[in-house]
């Protein structure tokens, strides 16, 4: 399953090139990627448009189109994402009941495992594997934050 991480990286780089925080995600069903996406926070002016949510929406559309029961389909999905899902995304993925989450580097600011034990709050456990190509994922983030998030208010600049 870790082989799909490269697909997630493709989305992360695409997000970076669009001026978004470089995080990419793919949803894998069997041996097929059924949803892929990167962060779209800045373009939508919506701070919740993380890569995982783009994939969730695509998957729901896929279910509607193919007339498949969403709950069952999600239970067979492996989430492959370059950065540990944040508390929000992790809560959504736990509630939807995905099969497993495989991530690259840890998210020490918002992590749904590192910062808050989302599984305990939501009350479901799923398999979570971290540290897959973590350094590359972290490098992408570092490189991005050296430049500035173009949509953030300029107050951040003063801190420097």
């Amino acid at each position: 399953m870790a082989a799909f991480m490269e697909e997630a990286f493709v989305e992360a780089r695409r997000a970076r090139d669009a001026g978004e925080v470089p995080v990419g995600c793919v949803f894998v069903l069997g041996d097929k990627v059924i949803a892929r996406g990167g962060n779209q926070v800045n373009v939508t002016r919506n701070a919740t448009r993380h890569a995982e949510f783009i994939c969730i929406d695509t998957t729901l559309a896929y279910c509607r189109e193919k007339r498949l029961p969403a709950r069952q389909l999600f239970s067979e999905i492996s989430v492959v994402v370059t950065v540990e899902p944040c508390i929000m995304c992790s809560a959504a993925l736990h509630t939807l009941g995905v099969k497993e989450i495989i991530y690259g580097c840890e998210n020490d600011r918002f992590g749904g495992k590192t910062l808050v034990d989302v599984a305990a709050v939501v009350g479901t456990r799923i398999d979570i594997i971290g540290g897959v190509r973590a350094e590359e994922a972290m490098d992408l983030l570092k490189e991005f934050y050296k430049g500035e998030n173009p949509a953030a208010p300029p107050v951040a600049k003063k801190k420097k």
Partner: peptide, 25 residues
């Protein structure tokens, strides 16, 4: 909405984004 994750807070922040010429859903 078949989507169990479209709670009203999630929609609300997207509608706020609409008021700022953004919005996703």
């Amino acid at each position: 909405c078949s989507s169990s994750h479209r709670h009203c807070s999630m929609l609300l922040v997207d509608y706020v984004a609409r008021s700022q010429q953004g919005g996703a859903t």
